[in-house]
Design a binder for these strands. Structure first.
Length: 396
DNA sequence: CTCTGCGCACGTG
DNA sequence: CACGTGCGCAGAG
């Protein structure tokens, strides 16, 4: 079966578990996929990771355990009916597009699975809010960020991560204790998250615009990526800092929802800590993260589907375009559904200013990316971002 | 045994 | 209040 088919299996499985009122956790998903289709749990884990990266599937921490949600079906509680429409529409797209990370469910929480595992992963800083303490810890480790820090290709890591996570850990198959999968997921999520960055793509109106949502992210994010030299280190430090504020609140309240998302998001950032080190980055990222706050629809659309929505987001984003760092740009494209191409932007060190200067030919030939994605990126994103940015600023 | 269905309690808006 | 979630149980195979 193709990857698309496999995705469908996973989504169907999640839906099935949900309808049965059983928690769609890694173990159940792997088991059901194996039973129904005979595929290996490892493969399922791998594919699941990909789906999480794309946000077709949302990994959330609900009531203390990890659950997976079919993003296409997640809707904000608030408006049911309307959403439904949206949802429906989205579902159609679901596989392909994946999209939003609507946060709808209250369920989202921090997916921190076990701190241990996570930590082990190193790659990410999973713990989110729940563990304020951990944050401290994270930070420490953050510094090192051992795993992928050095690499230029954070993006890459995205893909890799899932894979690796998959391979190793997941072996939920009944016998194994769960550690493999469960914990793994933590890390996965992180990696995944990276991919997840998309949220960030949304609009970062202003760096710290979203307080609430942001906070969540921050907390999550901050630990890892954000950790700058100055901040963190100790919890003490942390608290005082922005995160601190954010953190606690977030953690406390939203554990569920936001947190989950956040984690992902933050994980994303984890990918490239270095970049983040800059303050601005942090801010920016956070903003992006804010996405969570955005309506699912938009986000989903974001993937490239609707220009309108996209443009909308862009507008907001454009404001900060000049402030975007290389990581921000890469995150944006990754979130927009072009993770591979995002790597190219990173490799070429395209930051917000560079992005504004890019011409069609630069995108089509200067990044060494395939023509198809390049055209879409230029027409739907680069051009729109530039236009929006200049319109706004010119006016002013 | 595993898989399924679902009552119910819980948390959220 | 409505609604999503998932535990824990009972029943089916």
């Amino acid at each position: 079966m193709s990857e698309a088919e496999y995705r469908k299996w996973i989504l169907d499985t999640i839906d099935s578990l949900r309808s049965r009122k059983a928690r769609p956790d890694l173990e159940r998903i792997c088991r059901m996929v194996r039973r129904r289709h005979g595929s290996e749990p490892d493969r399922t884990c791998a594919e699941l990771e990909k789906l999480i990266q794309e946000q077709t599937v949302l990994k959330v921490n609900y009531k203390g355990s990890i659950s997976y949600r079919n993003a296409a079906k997640v809707q904000r509680r608030s408006r049911k009916k309307d959403d439904v429409t949206t949802t429906a529409r989205r579902s159609a797209v679901e596989e392909a597009s994946h999209s939003d990370l609507s946060n709808g469910d209250s369920a989202f929480g921090p997916v921190d699975q076990d701190e241990e595992d996570l930590e082990a992963d190193t790659s990410m800083a999973m713990d989110t809010d729940s563990n304020a303490d951990e944050e401290g810890a994270d930070e420490s480790r953050d510094g090192q960020d051992g795993p992928s820090p050095g690499r230029p290709e954070a993006d890459t890591s995205v893909r890799c991560a899932p894979v690796r996570a998959t391979s190793a850990p997941c072996s939920p198959s009944g016998t194994r204790p769960g550690p493999g999968c469960g914990p793994v997921s933590g890390l996965d999520s992180a990696s995944v998250q990276k991919a997840g960055e998309r949220p960030s793509s949304l609009p970062p109106p202003s760096p710290r615009a979203l307080t609430h949502n942001d906070w969540a992210y921050h907390s999550a994010v901050c630990p890892t990526e954000r950790q700058h030299p100055g901040m963190q280190r100790d919890k003490a430090a942390t608290k005082p800092a922005v995160h601190s504020a954010a953190t606690s609140p977030c953690a406390l309240k939203n554990n569920d929802y936001a947190a989950g998302l956040q984690e992902e998001t933050r994980n994303v950032s984890d990918g490239r800590p270095q970049a983040l080190s800059l303050p601005s980055d942090n801010c920016t990222l956070k903003n992006k993260l804010d996405i969570t706050s955005f309506p699912a629809e938009e986000v989903s659309l974001l993937n490239g589907v609707k220009d309108d929505e996209v443009s909308v987001k862009k507008e907001s984003m454009s404001q900060n375009l000049m402030q975007w760092t290389v990581s921000d740009v890469a995150s944006y494209f990754s979130a927009a559904g072009f993770p591979e191409q995002a790597v190219a932007f990173r490799t070429q060190e395209i930051d917000g200013k560079s992005l504004l200067l890019m011409q069609r030919s630069d995108v089509l030939t200067g990044l060494s990316i395939r023509l198809g994605p390049a055209l879409k990126i230029y027409e739907r994103h680069v051009k729109v971002l530039q236009r929006t940015h200049f319109l706004e600023y010119d006016d002013v």
